[in-house]
Computed example of a mutant assay.
Amino acid sequence: MPGATRHGDDVGRWLAAQRRNWDRLNAEQQRRLGELGVKKASRARKAAAKTTTKSGPRTGGNAFQKGLQALAQYVAREGGMPGRGAVEELADGPHRVGIWVGNQKARRDRLDPAQLAALAELGVDWAR
């Protein structure tokens, strides 16, 4: 279990690595771990291949639209940009609009021109 520490060392992470890299261990290491009840990790299923492309809008476009809606609602009510802790209530529940704006800024090089234009229209200065 990663996170279990002893004298500042993450023993859980170490143990997970031993199980994951079992075939790289020598016979003596495998034997000693086996005496402690440690076994080779079961083979993980391969993740499905990504089907999205690097450029253009992603499948998360709905999330972007929800964030944009929350930002528009906040700006209309408050007249300025939200702080990091701002939460906006939409029909489907609360949206952490302040964090969302920060995330968009961090990812601005991956936003398409239409997304940047929508943010700029709401007054986001870094999107211009």
Rank of each mutant, 00 (worst) to 15 (best):
F64G: 00
W22H: 03
G85D: 14
A118Q: 13
R45W: 07
W22F: 03
W126C: 02
W22P: 04
H7R: 15
I99Q: 11
T5E: 09
H7S: 14
Q30C: 13
R31N: 03
L36P: 05
A127N: 01
R32F: 10
G79I: 03
V97D: 01
R20D: 05
M1V: 11
L15N: 05
G93C: 04
A44N: 04
E35N: 07
L33R: 06
R31S: 12
E88Q: 15
G61F: 09
Q115P: 11
T51C: 00
A49Y: 08
K54N: 12
V124T: 05
G37R: 07
D10C: 12
R128P: 07
T52R: 15
L116Q: 12
R19F: 01
R107I: 00
R13D: 13
G12D: 04
L90I: 02
A120H: 10
M81P: 13
K54W: 11
S42R: 15
S55L: 06
E88K: 06
K46T: 09
R84D: 12
K46L: 08
A117F: 06
K105M: 09
D9I: 15
Q65K: 14
L119M: 09
A4E: 06
A27I: 15
V11M: 14
G3W: 04
A120W: 12
A120F: 08
R31P: 00
G98K: 02
A127M: 02
G102Y: 03
Q30I: 14
E121M: 11
R24W: 08
Q65T: 12
D9Q: 15
L122D: 04
Q73G: 01
R96P: 02
G8I: 10
A118W: 02
T52K: 14
L36C: 05
K54F: 11
A91R: 15
R20W: 07
